[in-house]
Design a protein around this nucleic acid. Structure first.
Lengths: 145, 145
DNA sequence: CAACAAAGTTAGTCACGTCTAACTTTTTCT
DNA sequence: AGAAAAAGTTAGACGTGACTAACTTTGTTG
């Protein structure tokens, strides 16, 4: 029996956790509570708490004191979230915004972008990259306004 | 003494309330608790509760059983929020997204867009309106992907 | 003008996601 | 191996913003 394609209603907080966990796994090979807490700038206690809820929700497997692993559905979700984050960052970067603003705005809005909007922004980004003149104007105007 | 330019840390919920309140005032001339509740799809009790907090925060003047009025800072804030909402909607509309998606996404992300990002999107929207060929391609690709 | 309806309010509860303080388990270091 | 440090957990609390149920005030209408 293949993994069921569970339609989830994940909160922004849950998405943030998954995003960081996947990032840690990709860079360090594993995700410890301390590290997750440090990246999200919240307490370890809060992380333990959420990790237990993510386990209950089937997004990861958690063993007390021993660590955690994403389930296949958790990982799939985390990858989508990460991709969405990347596409949005690329788009804002193209518009000439500074890294801090990009990080802040993407962090806030990424949880609210539907697949079709994301597709449109992706396509737009592609085309804009071939429009250096237009981009120059946009960046200039955005700076001056 | 002129009104102080108070730098606020308004939550998404507060922004949603202000947006609806201004909309009601603009269309009906006043904002009643029932109407706010109906537009936001929440209970009247919740609205009463929030209205009292907005009063305490100086964003509106509220008199029990009698109604409410935005203060000048509340109105200024509400106008900014409304403008931001409008600009984001226009941008997504330009990309060919359907009204329901636009409403949903803007409702979610509007609270997280910084002024500089908004300026960039505004400038971009202006220029894209002169690029029908590019827009046609983007819309098509977003549909197909 | 009395009664009924509509609008508004209060009180109490809840879920979410955070926190600190205290405690337990695991790891590291000598 | 034993002590100290680091990591992890639990318990209890809090703010935000929603809810329902019960109540009060205001408005309407015969």
């Amino acid at each position: 029996m293949p993994a069921k394609a569970t339609q989830r209603h994940t909160s922004s907080a849950v998405e943030d956790y998954l995003e960081r966990i996947l990032e840690l796994i990709n860079t360090k090979g594993y995700a410890r509570v301390v590290d997750i807490a440090q990246r999200l700038e919240i307490s370890q206690a809060s992380v333990t708490n959420m990790v237990q809820r993510l386990d209950a929700g089937g997004l990861l497997k958690y063993e007390k004191y021993r660590g955690l692993v994403l389930t296949s559905s958790g990982e799939a979700l985390a990858r989508n979230i990460t991709r969405r984050h990347q596409l949005l960052s690329d788009f804002l970067k193209l518009l000439g915004l500074d890294d801090e603003t990009i990080y802040h705005d993407v962090e806030g809005m990424e949880h609210h972008i539907s697949p079709s909007t994301l597709r449109a922004i992706e396509a737009l980004t592609q085309h804009l990259q071939r429009q250096p003149v237009l981009l120059t104007k946009v960046r200039k105007e955005a700076r001056e306004d």
